[in-house]
Design a protein around this nucleic acid. Structure first.
Lengths: 185, 185
DNA sequence: CGCGTTCTGTACCTGGGGGTCAACAAGTGC
DNA sequence: GCACTTGTTGACCCCCAGGTACAGAACGCG
């Protein structure tokens, strides 16, 4: 193996993220990954398989970010706020979240995709829940709220926001929704 | 014009809804719409144009539903609950919302699509806001909440839920999130 | 009923998607 | 340095997506 397969997956992730699955052609991939078609298919079996690998890579990447993020000494609300902003892809806002895009495009028809997405969604929700519980013990958050329900609501908000950012002008309004949700915790 | 173009658009809407844009081929369309390719392209110009027409049709259909729904004598929370359930596509849950799917697939790269989606999203939010305001005047809802912000949050929840339903097992948990959001109003 | 016009159906075309393969280059053991 | 094995490449292939064009059918009109 001469070229760096790991780096290639990472690049592929970016390509799929920008273009989506269907709109990404083998040609795009070979040109962006700087490898020949043969290597592509020898190493990654198929476009679809490379896509799944990219999703998995994205997923672990995001989970790593969450772990770091919630390990910071910041107040919980700030951590949550930061996490949500990053996850929604606020800023480079016409890419959204790769997993959200993948779900919308292939979600209900491709099991190998849903397996990855479900894991990530569950992982995010879990990280939220743990953080919220910690915040409640700290006295930073209102302990009257059910942490599981709150985490679910936050996940839903993240997903919804990530999508609305792709279509909506006036991102400020969308962000206000996030703030309101977090402040209500 | 021999065949019913309007009915054809409606059928096409269903096809795009199920399959997405990219995965819908001219062949699928001719076979489902029961018309020849010539009629297809003579009448609708292109697959893309037909898609936009389908989106528009979906949009007016949904807006019509909302108008009816909020005209009912039911309590506001019930109206909202019903609206959200329908909009998210709960039940036939692996289609989600056509507009959400379209946004995820083409959102940031196709202006004629974003024009339609932004309109619908704004329309939904508006309908929510009006209903919430009415509920507040009625005393059914807590007037301390900002109706605009609440409507935005509800829209975000709808979009997020519509997407999560495509990937997530255990739809019950997702629905709980909706209930919690509405009950908090 | 004949003629034109519109609508329809289908054969056809082009481009590119997704993938394979045989020749070639680049490392590896001796 | 030489055979051998593994990695890489780009030409090649098939098929189908997306669309066009033309021939024929259905309707309108005198």
């Amino acid at each position: 193996m001469q070229f760096d397969a790991d780096a290639a997956i990472e690049t592929a992730m970016g390509v799929f993220w920008r273009n989506g699955y269907g709109a990404t052609t083998p040609q795009t991939l070979t040109s962006e990954l700087q490898i020949g078609k043969g290597s592509l298919y020898n190493t990654f079996k198929s476009k679809h398989h490379l896509f799944v690998l990219s999703l998995a890579r994205y997923s672990t990447w995001r989970m790593g970010f969450l772990a770091d993020n919630f390990a910071s000494p910041d107040p919980v609300r700030l951590q949550l706020r930061e996490a949500v902003e990053v996850l929604t892809g606020y800023g480079d806002h016409d890419r959204g979240c790769l997993l959200v895009n993948a779900t919308a495009e292939l979600g209900s028809s491709d099991q190998s995709v849903t397996e990855v997405t479900e894991d990530l969604f569950a992982g995010i929700e879990d990280a939220f829940r743990v953080a919220i519980q910690r915040g409640q013990r700290n006295g930073e958050l209102d302990p009257a709220n059910d942490p599981g329900a709150a985490a679910g609501a936050l996940l839903t908000t993240v997903v919804g926001t990530s999508l609305l950012l792709k279509s909506r002008t006036g991102q400020g309004r969308v962000l206000r929704t996030i703030d309101a949700t977090i402040n209500g915790l």
